[in-house]
Each structure stands twice: as structure tokens, then as C-alpha cells.
């Protein structure tokens, strides 16, 4: 296991470097001049003065050779200097530090909520295949896959306002200041996101569990006269959950994208909202740093999933 962790960690570094190069290139090969875009403004009405343009390009370091730009950026990041926001002029790192806990809270709450619903639901669906429970749950989960999460959120808002005449407390409360108000604000975003995640996980659990339940060793377990609970939970579930772990890891990318939308809808000052604001104000260093941060989080989640997988399934680490 120790060898596997070390090996896997050394594969992690080159991919991380590659991703940073990729983000760097993506931000630059796109047709259009960032400096020009900033000057023109979002409405495309701004005056463009060639001298000013040149000055801005200098300030952003866009006139230097690409490799120099790249190493300045990465070198800065390694020293903890992510650059300064063009909009507010505060260091990007500070902005990230104040906003990260909220996004992390939403993401964690989403995972916890959806797992606690999806796993039992998936197990019940598989155990009672082709009964009305299975059919109802399948329709509900298909709905979760088809409905865009911002529409789910809009509908939740709609029902709360029309039926209960209630809206979440306005003005964001930090979790340490007022946990209950904070919970009321964050839970809706987590629910909206959790529906999709729970749908994916429940369907995955159902199909893998069904596959496992048809295997020989399960028939042996039945033949021994074990109770259903023991067959499913102790014997089948252990093997069925392996692919589910992978899926949850892969869904992390979708989750991060989802928090961006949820923070926008429920007006929560997290990283996602910051990303949208930065994009709209063409805050180029901020966008670059945030995309990099999101990529790091996802890579890290994948690493954790791989390690977890190796721990659960010894064949992986000796293979």
C-alpha cells in the first residue's frame, strides 16, 4: 500500500504541471486580446487608446515571451503569490481563502446528503427490482439526470415563495456566526446539486448491485440459508460499491461546476460567485487562478478516489 501511494503521488505531479500548462495555453490561444477585451468592456462600447492598450499589455505581462509568462505565473503560485485581482486589487490568494470555506461547505453537504439518500435507495431498487418501488425510484432518478440543476433550484424557490411564502435569510451569515441561518441558506444549494448526484449514484448502485447479485458466490450465500439482509449488505454490497466509489470521484468535477451555479442563484459569496464576477469584469488573473484551483481540487479528489479504490480492492495495488 505504501508503495502504491508513493507511485500514485509521483504520477500526480506531472499531470498537475500539465494542467497548469494547459490552462495557461487555453487562456492565451483563444482568439481575442485580453487587454483589448478589458478596455472595450462587457458592452463593447469602451474607447481604445493604443498607448493605454500597450500599457495594459505591459502591466499584465502579455508582451513578454510565453515561457517567461508561464514560469512567472507558476513560480508565483509556488511561493503562494497568485497575483492581484484587476478589479479589487487585493491578492487573489486572500480572496480565495475567505471564500473557500463556503464552497467547501456546500460541496461537503451535497455529498453527505446525496450519499445518505442514494445508497439506501439504490440498494432497495436492486433488491425489489421491477416492483413499483423500483419503477417510481427510476422515474425520480431519471428526472434528476434530465433536469438542469439551475431549474431545480428555481422550482424550489418558486414553491417556497408561492406555497410557504418563505425565502432563505438574506445577507450571508458565516457558519460560526449563526449556524442555523447559515444552514438555511446553504441547504438549498446542496439539495439542488444533491438531486443530480443522488440520481447518478442511486442508478449506479442499483445496476452494479444487480450484476453482483447474479454471481455464484451470492447463490452460495443464499444456499447457506443466510438472511436477505446479510446476503445483500455483507456479501454483495462490498463488491458492488467499488464502481460507485469511482463514480462519486468523477462526479466531483460536475459538483464543482454546480456550486458555481448554485452560489449564483442563492446569492452565496463562495468561489463560484467570485468566478462569475471575475469573468464578467474580465478579471484575468482571478479567472486563471480560480480555474487552476478547481482543477487542483478535482485532481486531488481523483487521487483520493484512486487510493481509496486501492485500499478497498487489493487487486489494484498489486496489479
Amino acid at each position: 500500500m505504501k508503495n502504491y501511494i508513493i507511485r500514485r503521488f509521483f504520477q500526480f505531479i506531472p499531470v498537475l504541471i500539465g494542467v497548469s500548462i494547459l490552462i495557461f495555453i487555453l487562456m492565451r490561444i483563444v482568439p481575442g486580446d485580453v487587454a483589448l477585451m478589458i478596455l472595450i468592456g462587457p458592452e463593447g462600447t469602451g474607447e481604445v487608446d493604443p498607448i493605454q492598450l500597450e500599457a495594459l499589455r505591459d502591466e499584465l505581462g502579455l508582451n513578454r515571451p510565453l515561457p517567461v509568462q508561464y514560469f512567472t505565473w507558476v513560480g508565483g503560485m509556488l511561493k503562494g503569490d497568485f497575483g492581484h485581482s484587476l478589479r479589487t486589487d487585493i491578492p487573489v490568494f486572500d480572496e480565495i481563502r475567505t471564500r473557500f470555506p463556503l464552497t467547501f461547505e456546500i460541496a461537503t453537504l451535497t455529498v453527505l446528503l446525496s450519499m445518505s439518500i442514494a445508497l439506501p435507495l439504490g440498494i432497495i431498487m436492486a433488491m425489489r427490482q421491477d416492483t413499483w418501488i423500483d419503477y417510481t425510484a427510476r422515474i425520480v432518478t431519471i428526472g434528476g439526470l434530465a433536469m438542469p440543476n439551475f431549474w431545480v433550484a428555481t422550482l424550489m424557490l418558486l414553491f417556497m415563495v408561492i406555497w410557504f411564502n418563505w425565502i432563505p435569510p438574506l445577507g450571508y451569515e458565516h457558519i460560526w456566526d449563526d449556524p442555523w441561518a447559515n444552514f438555511q441558506q446553504v441547504i438549498w444549494g446542496a439539495l439542488g446539486l444533491g438531486y443530480l448526484l443522488a440520481a447518478v449514484v442511486a442508478r449506479m448502485t442499483r445496476s452494479t448491485l444487480l450484476e453482483v447479485l447474479r454471481q455464484d458466490y451470492i447463490r452460495t450465500a443464499w444456499a447457506k440459508g443466510l438472511r436477505e439482509r446479510s446476503v445483500v449488505i455483507r456479501h454483495a454490497l462490498k463488491n458492488a460499491l467499488l464502481p460507485v466509489v469511482t463514480i462519486v470521484g468523477l462526479q466531483y468535477a460536475a459538483l464543482i461546476g454546480g456550486t458555481v451555479i448554485m452560489e449564483q442563484i442563492w446569492n452565496l459569496p463562495g468561489l463560484g460567485q467570485s468566478l462569475i464576477v471575475s469573468i464578467n469584469s474580465r478579471d484575468f488573473p482571478m479567472v486563471q487562478a480560480l480555474v487552476m484551483l478547481f482543477a487542483i481540487i478535482i485532481l486531488f479528489a481523483n487521487l483520493v478516489v484512486d487510493l481509496l479504490y486501492a485500499w478497498l480492492d487489493p487487486r489494484v495495488r498489486y496489479g
Binding site: 487555453l26 471575475s278 478535482i298
Partner: peptide
């Protein structure tokens, strides 16, 4: 490794 929506956002933003 890049989150789909964030990638799309970044591209469209630029």
C-alpha cells in the same frame, strides 16, 4: 481534470 462547466465558463469568458 478540468471541471466541464468551469472550463466552458473560462473559454467563453476569454
Amino acid at each position: 481534470a478540468l471541471p466541464i462547466l468551469v472550463l466552458a465558463l473560462a473559454i467563453v469568458a476569454m
